[in-house]
């Protein structure tokens, strides 16, 4: 397996980030692995990490006593899981569970927030990337709200 320093700059989320900033990000990163079924994070717990998915699939889930476990979205290789580390109150809103064996890069939210505070240019670059992820997810959610394939009114 390739090293983090080799892999991370090629991940779509970090594409185009300047090498100096990349070095800073690498300082907050570590490789992690999850077995199928294992939780990456759970609703309500402190959002201190976000995950860059290298392999496998992660499901964002909500659990309801009556309906059971519903999947809100799935995330795969090339995507990232979690942005609550960036927005107060820094708590996860959904459960994230590995539906297959998952290899990911965990980035320490505390560490990254600190670096961003010190280096607004890095903060802006990361913010832009997170904003793009949020934009895609919002579009995804909005279009799915339309229930396009469902029974027409």
């Amino acid at each position: 397996m390739r090293t983090l320093a080799e892999y991370l700059p090629e991940h779509p989320f970090f594409a185009g980030l300047d090498p100096a900033s990349m070095d800073v990000v690498l300082g907050c990163a570590q490789n992690v692995h999850f077995a199928a079924g294992e939780m990456l994070f759970q609703t309500g717990s402190p959002a201190d990490t976000f995950y860059v998915i290298r392999q496998g699939r992660v499901a964002l889930e909500a659990h309801d006593p009556r309906s059971g476990t519903m999947v809100v979205a799935t995330l795969s290789e090339g995507e990232v899981a979690g942005w609550s580390w960036l927005v107060p109150p820094y708590r996860w809103m959904f459960d994230a569970r590995a539906v297959s064996p998952v290899s990911a890069v965990a980035l320490d939210g505390d560490c990254l927030r600190g670096k961003c505070d010190q280096d607004p240019a890095l903060g802006y670059a990361l913010m832009q990337r997170v904003a793009h992820v949020m934009y895609e997810r919002l579009q995804d959610a909005r279009i799915r709200l339309l229930d396009l394939y469902g029974e027409a009114p």
Partner: peptide
Amino acid sequence: VTVDYGPPGWSGRVGLVTTLVAR
């Protein structure tokens, strides 16, 4: 294959089909 609504027991993708285009 991706679905808009992932009920309990579904282990496939959940999300909009158009977002698959990018990757």
